[in-house]
């Protein structure tokens, strides 16, 4: 299945887009999406050490199962305030 991952801040600037798509197997987990991001979008590799993934507006844990309709986002280092 194809999962769209929203990007913000430095990650969005790095790839010049507000989101990318990754191809993962049906039943994939959050960690699979992370691995797919790194392999299918090498321009995001630098952020994989610190960025977190969210699923439907909540920080996700590695073994959560992902569906194609989920809103997935890559949350890099934040700087609000």
């Amino acid at each position: 299945m194809t999962v769209r991952v929203l990007l913000f801040g430095a990650e969005a600037q790095a790839v010049g887009a507000a989101g990318v798509e990754v191809l993962v197997a049906d039943g994939a987990r959050v960690e699979d999406v992370r691995l797919a991001l790194a392999s299918q979008h090498p321009g995001l590799m630098w952020s994989m050490g610190h960025a977190r993934l969210s699923r439907n507006h909540v920080f996700a844990v590695a073994d959560e199962v992902v569906s194609a309709t989920d809103e997935i986002a890559l949350i890099g280092l934040v700087s609000g305030g």
């Binding site: 920080f59 609000g80 305030g81």
Partner: peptide
């Protein structure tokens, strides 16, 4: 609250 905001709230500035 402010510590958590700066760590866990998806807001970016440039």
């Amino acid at each position: 609250f402010i510590d958590a905001l700066k760590r866990d709230v998806p807001i970016w500035k440039r």
